[in-house]
Design a protein around this nucleic acid. Structure first.
Ligand SMILES: NC(=O)c1ccc[n+]([C@@H]2O[C@H](COP(=O)([O-])OP(=O)(O)OC[C@H]3O[C@@H](n4cnc5c(N)ncnc54)[C@H](O)[C@@H]3O)[C@@H](O)[C@H]2O)c1
Ligand SMILES: NC(=O)c1ccc[n+]([C@@H]2O[C@H](COP(=O)([O-])OP(=O)(O)OC[C@H]3O[C@@H](n4cnc5c(N)ncnc54)[C@H](O)[C@@H]3O)[C@@H](O)[C@H]2O)c1
Lengths: 256, 256
DNA sequence: TACCGCTTGTGAACGCTTGCACAAAGTCGG
DNA sequence: CCGACTTTGTGCAAGCGTTCACAAGCGGTA
């Protein structure tokens, strides 16, 4: 059972398995791409797509880094993971970069998405135009409520959860999105996995148990809020603690 | 202008500034809490809250780690950042742990939330019961659409975006949530900051520019999808590349 | 052609995070 | 009261990720 990855996670790169070390082949010098870099590549791609629309043809690492909110050295290192497509003294060709990032992220293929749980959040997701436009067509919607079955949401009729296996197979769903109440999330997850879905995006505030070969990412908004809350508290402590040499109200040093 | 933190970010802990080293005070031995640990503490808190409801009074690091999907050593280290509240040979008192995590995360105070942009996503957020129940009451809703002004959503009437400064001050909003179209996000962000909001959760797929003292976290679902897509591609390459010693179709080694 | 200035790509250092392994410390049964 | 067993808390080492700094490379110019 693999734990899912999520927002606050630090190191998530799969470590190269030691032990069965393959011979030092020349081709082995190419590196695996750190997951943190993958996440940033997706951001660069979005920024670059905007650049293309504005008619920008060339961009330097400094400019792109500024637009993406990262350090330019980090940006160059991230891009170096996918190859050397820049021109020294000039910068990067925007369209070339876009196509290479898309290739690495596997966006040359379409990835059909299924949303399970068509409540408040599920409706918003089904209606969201940002998924199809970025290569993730929403191909199926599921709910347990029989009153919803057949009702079109965002142009797609809702199927009953019991049909999940056949429908997912028919429509070649590769990504499942869980937007059910937390109590139902694990069961829904299990059904998605049985249906052959190997990538899951989970909005329910529960830790899902899945086989190792399934990739789970979670989005927990309450956790995001709590991290922000921590920073509010940190700031308050800082302000109050300045007079006592940086010691927070609870005796915990916030900034050493 | 500080870049916002988000899902895939790795190291986000503010490094202790070297140079002006304060005298080695006894109280200084306490450590700052790494941001990665803060995110996990929020998860532990959620799991522990569930335990309380189930009537569990004591839990070992092994059990809690399993329920939270992390290594038990990591869990113990995370908990050690906030103090020593376990009993050797027994485990942790669930309620004690809950209260201490809540204290560290600043949840003893209520943090009022304002949602800006009451469209598909804004409606879902306003109706979501998970925020108030975890200490984040939604105190204000804003939209630019005059037809929405005054309409109650999730029990709260929508205010016009032009009133953001006065309303946020009146209701002591400390967290702003941006759910507007991307084109409007930066302007909305600027207005929130002017209104004194120092913590922002951004759903719009844009990189926000904010002053250093403002904390931004972003949730970009398309980026999440693209990370999943990368793993799909990785897997496909792995399967295809097994015959050529782990080399992906593009010559990029996915798993060395 | 030779030089100059600019930008990329990357080796190396540094610091954070993780995971191991174990002493310390407490409980429980006898 | 003691000894065996359980579990915490943490020093330490290894692994990643970030950042610095600079040689290498390219276009433009004289
Ligand atoms: N609404 C939000 O803004 C928001 C924000 C963050 C997280 N979440 C989380 O997302 C999830 C959904 O939230 P929501 O507000 O949309 O809830 P909701 O109650 O509005 O919708 C849940 C839907 O899931 C369906 N459902 C229940 N059990 C099911 C099952 N076994 N199989 C298939 N469908 C099932 C229900 O019929 C309902 O339509 C929850 O876990 C919630 O914690 C929601
Ligand atoms: N719907 C989703 O599931 C989803 C998922 C991921 C990301 N997002 C992002 O969230 C944002 C909102 O998505 P949505 O689907 O709810 O869009 P939407 O068009 O349904 O709603 C946007 C709302 O913002 C309001 N608005 C526009 N300009 C404004 C301004 N200057 N000030 C205040 N309000 C303003 C509009 O009146 C509208 O009510 C977008 O940036 C989108 O990319 C949405």
């Amino acid at each position: 059972m693999a734990a899912q990855r999520g927002e606050g996670d630090g190191v998530v790169t799969r470590p190269g398995e030691t032990g069965t070390e393959a011979p030092a082949d020349v081709r082995e010098r190419a590196r695996a791409i750190p997951e943190a870099a993958v996440a940033r590549l997706a951001v660069y791609l979005r920024v670059l797509s905007g650049m293309v629309e504005q008619g920008v043809t060339t961009i330097s690492s400094e400019e792109l880094a500024g637009a993406a909110g990262v350090n330019s050295a980090k940006l160059r290192k991230d891009l170096s993971y996918i190859g050397s497509y820049g021109t020294r003294g000039v910068g990067y060709d925007v369209e070339v970069l876009v196509s290479h990032i898309e290739r690495i992220l596997g966006l040359t293929r379409k990835h059909s998405v299924a949303v399970v749980g068509i409540g408040n959040l599920g409706h918003a997701l089904a209606n969201y135009g940002g998924f199809p436009s970025r290569g993730f067509p929403v191909a199926a919607l599921f709910d347990i409520d029989p009153d919803l079955t057949g009702v079109p949401v965002g142009g797609i009729p809702v199927d009953h959860i019991d049909d999940i296996t056949t429908v997912c197979a028919e429509r070649e769903v590769s990504i499942g999105v869980i937007a059910t109440p937390p109590q139902a999330a694990q069961a829904v997850c299990d059904r998605l996995v049985s249906a052959g879905v190997q990538c899951i995006l989970n909005f329910a505030p529960v830790v899902l148990q899945v086989p190792d070969y399934v990739e789970v990412r979670k989005v927990d908004l309450a956790v995001e809020m709590q991290i922000l809350s921590f920073h509010v508290a940190r700031r308050a402590d800082e302000a109050a603690g300045d007079v006592v040499n940086g010691i927070g109200v609870d005796g915990v040093v916030i900034r050493p």
